[in-house]
Nucleic acid binder design. Sequence first.
DNA 1: CTGAAAGCGCTTACAG
DNA 2: CTGAAAGCGCTTACAG
Lengths: 338, 338
Amino acid sequence: MKSNVTMRDIADKLGVSSVTVSKALNDKDGVSDELKERIKTLAGEMGYRFNTAAKSMKEGLTYNIGVVIPERFTGPSQSFYLHIYQQISRELEQYGYYGILHILHREDEEQLNLPRIYYDRKVDGFILLGQVSKPYIELVQSMDLPKMFLDFYDEHADIDSVVTDNFYGAYELTNYLIAQGHRDIAYVGNLYSTSSIQDRFLGYYKSLLEHRLPLRNEWVLSDRDDEGAVYVDVELPQPLPTAFVCNCDQVAYNLVQKLIAQGYRVPEDCSVVGFDNDVYATLIVPQLTTVGVDIEQMARTAIESIMKKISHPGSRFGRVLVQGHIVYRDSVQRIERP
Amino acid sequence: MKSNVTMRDIADKLGVSSVTVSKALNDKDGVSDELKERIKTLAGEMGYRFNTAAKSMKEGLTYNIGVVIPERFTGPSQSFYLHIYQQISRELEQYGYYGILHILHREDEEQLNLPRIYYDRKVDGFILLGQVSKPYIELVQSMDLPKMFLDFYDEHADIDSVVTDNFYGAYELTNYLIAQGHRDIAYVGNLYSTSSIQDRFLGYYKSLLEHRLPLRNEWVLSDRDDEGAVYVDVELPQPLPTAFVCNCDQVAYNLVQKLIAQGYRVPEDCSVVGFDNDVYATLIVPQLTTVGVDIEQMARTAIESIMKKISHPGSRFGRVLVQGHIVYRDSVQRIERP
DNA sequence: CTGAAAGCGCTTACAG
DNA sequence: CTGAAAGCGCTTACAG
């Protein structure tokens, strides 16, 4: 296949102008159907490939969306955001867009360097996937490009976001535990690291409130540092509660292993639930009861929104919640009330 | 920040020409140091951002590399290739390039549709990450763009590739098992699905040959269909061998679960080794002895090669092998020879 | 050291 | 229905 065929080449062969070729290839009015067909056929035969760069320059659009993921969410054992990115790529296809992944390095986040894709005008908009520091959020706001937060939000930043309904998911999950007879329920997660962990905690707390169960400080267990990165070893409280609501499957996974290592049986001695329904939920015995995050819907909503922002600057969507659903597995045991 | 600042705007403010601005911003000769500084400073103040699209059109380069991954390697539980893609993105940074992910849908592979990024001239080269069908390989060859195969190869296709040294890795791993006293060693993998599985098998076989151990057909166990997609249940041979060489960690993981479910202890009754050192290797008790694939080195080599192909069309690299390394964990037991 | 001219490949008015 | 002209923002010779 020849690669350097232009509209002009096609036009010359047919003795028409390149304007006509452009119209024909873009299915615009102003060309007879017959000529249109001839042009399209010849374009195919000559191996014509559209030059997006030329269109880009003319229109000022790149047809790319930048997907920025902070480095700390991309370790070898973390694939959740990569899967979301993959789903974003798929969604973008329908719009003729492409997703460019940018891993935000720790240093760049600390030193407040915007992604290179911004300075290179490589993208028409940004999706920030995963919580970043407050100063970085402010920096991001200074970019005059459509942008969305995905899977986190910030109360103070006036940026549209798409998040799982963390609050409601954790609320329902805790309700379920209570319905199974549990009264002594701990929460595992650092309340000061991400909005997700905080909101899941509040959902848990709401459920306790509604059932008039006390919130016990010694049953709120931190699992990581404030940056949300390093997982710390969770200290088991004594006496043990009968159930743990973990802020994510990975932490639930670690907790179950720890419980088992200390001689407890799950769920017989102690029930554990997670959140996310990711790979960790099924790679352990017992498999975890958890909240399934609707990755497809999140990607779809984020892309729909950012596309509207590109075509209609100034569109606002606020904070959009995407419902998850409880996945019932084997890590919860019904207990009889004394 | 204003987004529509051009070189011309900067030039006008300074009373110079846009050529001079271009030279200054690109650090080319032909501008006095003093003027260069003034231009750079003003560019910063005015929030100038480079317009890659214009450069692209002028040079005919997109500064993008397409990374094509067949859909069947991207399921929710498969993150290996996504991590490689991520590493590719990082490597590309140094070259001022970006990686565009394209998931190759099943239908497009079957109906022999080239990725949209090709027709849109979105990329200067392709990395095909993960084995595709023979007809698709031929189709890919018809594209007149630099391309590399990553993590697989095809004997008949004359395309450069970067692969883990599967042969040598499996050979060493099998040697290790034999050194631990094992003589009855099975291999798990469909020999007709991918080049990796085949080569790993041959490494296993070479080790057997060298130690004058017979290759027993009933100990070569298929784990998937010929397309490499669907994992089938592995049938355990009776009597059980003392060790299994699995073609990847995921299959080893499944096998260990099956063995345990049937009442065997691993590694006491039976040793199991995997390949890849991915998330499956450590998410099970016992953790798996396996071959660690050097993702960084693979990405680095692939990117170096494709960059050379772009700057020097016609460069050839052949099949480049990247060495892995055995990771010793707890799934192998030394057995005493009778 | 500095700049006028031409061109990369397309699309958008506008004129016929 | 068809096309000549202008322009998107840059870079590459080339001339001064």
